[in-house]
Structure formats: structure tokens, C-alpha cells
Design a protein around this nucleic acid. Structure first.
Lengths: 218, 218
DNA sequence: TTGCAAATACGTCAAATGTCGTATAGGAAA
DNA sequence: TTTCCTATACGACATTTGACGTATTTGCAA
């Protein structure tokens, strides 16, 4: 008995979706649950049904591109594997896709069997990669480029005291200990944290710390 | 007409050299030019004959280990491809081998066909990698480890399911959402987390996530 | 075959956290 | 001067989390 692999294809080119579907049609356990035409279409459809094993994701798409979509998906449904399937293999795309949490990166001209094996490998806790992509990741590891492409990032302004509190938070301390360290009442610490959450638009410690790190606030 | 691939095997275990030779015996264009028992033996032999396409290199060897040997070889004969072929797949070895200039990294239990394809891919300007190794390189790219304070690390062993849960935790999801994503009852999620905390010796989400990242568990 | 680890699941309780509302004092900006 | 922001602080309440104990099923290894 083999387990069905619930698969989703995301691509703005219906022609290419068809091509991928055909490549996978040889393999019985691969089941295409649905397809989507861009990132936002995917998000809509997946919110109704996140019982999905793997997403094959194009990068260059309108509205919400594959890298942005990957980041959102991996944050909300970390159990879903995302394999980039694209014609572009420039360093920046590869690096950003990996940073966004992609579990693999294949080129569209991939052989049916290779694509299939990539999906299997990924579901078995590996990563799917073209040899040429693999080489690029090795080069990136050897010579880490700083692609800090902070483009239109919103400027989040925290007060000095809020930074102090956030720093303590990031160490995993609780309110009591933070209060002791900063010579405040626990009530004040809580209020600071409440304000921090509002400013960062998050709802718990972990999200706050991660967002703060991402924005170089701490 | 196919080109002969001039190959060298380096391993201090003659038994394993034999095993590799046998795996490659199926493929006519692979020609084992010679074998070496450690890095310095390799350097001696190769100085007399560096008309070589690819070296299959063990890591753990006396006198001069595979990583040091790789660095020297790649500096002196950059045209020679070096593929690590080892039983060890810890982060440090992988990272150091890549830094030393390795063109691939395979585990010794590799299938003959996969080994052969890895050699071909590498000679065609790609990189050979196990899916599990590929995943590790992705994690390293996402979460660059500080190899300076990496010596005395205790080996923390989490089960596969515990890793799944931890991954979800790291996104800031609460128990209910994790349960939904993994199709578990919240009670089970809590129990898994309890066990994770015990193993990692921590007492809250943030510490767990940070320790897991530090140990490249996620 | 026995035994053990892993995965699943429930219940309980205390502690910590997240979200409200409210309030005062001080300093900077308009 | 008046207004606004920051820092401080308290109370209340619901939710979430952390820490116990216990139990069943399954699969793999000894």
C-alpha cells in the first residue's frame, strides 16, 4: 500500500501547469489536488484545504510571486513542503527562495523521473536540487553574499526602553525576571510588551523576537 | 564515442576502496587510475600524475585528512573535481568540506547508479549531493552557524515527529494551530512539546526554538 | 516473542501570557 | 502653553502554556 501524495501546482502559465501535470501523470501516487495561478490565488485556495503534502511553485508570477508566497505558506503551514520549479536560476532567486524556506529548487526542464524523485526525497526529509543549483548553493555557502535587499520595508520605531525590554525578552526571560533586571514593576514590563506587540503587529514573544531580529532592532 | 573518466579513490580502509571500485565497475567509462590511503599518499601519487578528472575522497584518514587534502588539491589542481565520500554527515564536516572547495558530498551507502550520476553531473559543471546533505546545506545557508563555539556540543536526539512539532513552534504557532496543521489532538502536541523541553533542557518555546536553531535541528 | 521507543491521547492544576482599561509624571515638540 | 509621546504603574480577565500523571497502539530491535 502506497500513500497518496497530495500535490499542488502554482504557475501563472496554464500551459506550463499542463506540462507539469503530464510529467507527473506517470506516477500513480501523485495526486494533483488543485492548481493556482499566482501566490494570492494559492493562499485563497489553501485556506480552505491545507491537507497538502507538497507545493510545486513557480517564481515569476503576478500579484504575489513565488518567493513571497513561499514565505507566507511556510510560516502558516510549516509542514507543507515547497519545491521551487522555475526557469530562472540566478543567485538572487535561489538565495531568496532558500531564505524563504523552500525545501527544494528544480528547473522546469526537469525530467519526469527526476521531478518525481525530488518530491519523494523531499517528503522523506531531504531536499530536491538540480546539480547545477546544488553547485550554486555550495558557492553561496563558500562566499556568502549579503543580499540584504531591504527594499520598501516599513520603518518600525521602538522607543529606547522598548528595545531594552525586547532584548530581555529575546533571551527567553519571563516578565518577573525582566522587571528585576530593569528595575521596573512587572506591570510596566507587561505594558511595554503590549506596546511592542502593537507596533510590531504581533501577538506573542516568539513572533516579536523574530520580527525584531529581521528588522535589526535587536 | 565516450570519454574515459580518470578517477582516483582515497580511503584509509582498503576494504571500502574495494567496495567503491566494485560499485563503479558497472560503468565502462570510469577508469580508476590509482587509489591512495590518506591525504599525503594522495599528494605524493598525484604529483607524478595529475591528469585526473575526479577524486572520491574519504574524510576521516590518518596523517592528512580528506578536508585538508581537498584544500591543497583544489589550490594546486583546480581543474580536478573532488567529491567527498564519507560515512560522516555532521554539519561541521559538510561545511568545512565545502569551504575547502569540494564539488560534491555523498554518503558511502550511495547506490552505484547515484554515485555514477554524481560523477557525471559534477564533471558537467554541477554538484553531487545526497538529498539529506542538500537539506543540510540549505539549513546552513538559512542559519549560518558559528563554527567557533561548536566544539563540545552535546548530541541531542529528537524524534522525527518532535522535529515536526518544533518546526511549527518556531513559526510562533500555538498548540491549537499546530494540532490542526499536523492533524493531531492539542493534547498530543502538548505532550510532544513537553518531551522536547525535557530533551533540550529548556522551559519555554523561545528557549526551545533558539536551542534547536543553535544545534541545527530545524 | 518480548520489550522498548515513538506516537497518540486525556485530565488536572498552577503559572505565565495576552488584552483590555485606566492613570500619573516628565519631557519634547508644536 | 498646550499637546503628545514615553515611561511608569495597577487591576481584571480569558487564554495559553508548562508540568504532572496515566494510558493505548504500533513498529522495530534484541
Amino acid at each position: 500500500m502506497q500513500k497518496i501524495i497530495k500535490t499542488v501546482i502554482v504557475d501563472d502559465n496554464t500551459f506550463l501547469i499542463k506540462a507539469i501535470q503530464e510529467k507527473l501523470s506517470f506516477f500513480d501516487e501523485i495526486q494533483i489536488k488543485f492548481t493556482a495561478l499566482d501566490g494570492s490565488d494559492l493562499l485563497t485556495k489553501i485556506s480552505n484545504n491545507h491537507n497538502i503534502d507538497v507545493i510545486l511553485m513557480d517564481i515569476d508570477m503576478p500579484i504575489l510571486n513565488g518567493i513571497e508566497a513561499t514565505e507566507i505558506i511556510k510560516n502558516k503551514y510549516p509542514h507543507i513542503k515547497v519545491i521551487m520549479l522555475t526557469v530562472f536560476d540566478n543567485d538572487e532567486n535561489i538565495f531568496n527562495a532558500i531564505k524563504a524556506g523552500a525545501d527544494g529548487y528544480l528547473l522546469k526542464e526537469v525530467e519526469p523521473k527526476t521531478l518525481y524523485e525530488g518530491i519523494i526525497d523531499t517528503l522523506n526529509g531531504g531536499a530536491a536540487m538540480n546539480p547545477s543549483i546544488a553547485l550554486k548553493t555550495l558557492k553561496l555557502l563558500r562566499n556568502p553574499i549579503d543580499l540584504d535587499n531591504k527594499k520598501e520595508e516599513e520603518i518600525i520605531k521602538l522607543s529606547g526602553r522598548e528595545i531594552d525590554v525586547l532584548e530581555q525578552l529575546s533571551k527567553g526571560l519571563n516578565y518577573i525576571n525582566i522587571a528585576e533586571n530593569l528595575f521596573l514593576s512587572p506591570a510596566t514590563v507587561r505594558k511595554h510588551i503590549e506596546n511592542i506587540y502593537t507596533k510590531l503587529q504581533v501577538h506573542n514573544k516568539l513572533e516579536a523576537v523574530q520580527k525584531a531580529k529581521k528588522n535589526n532592532l535587536i
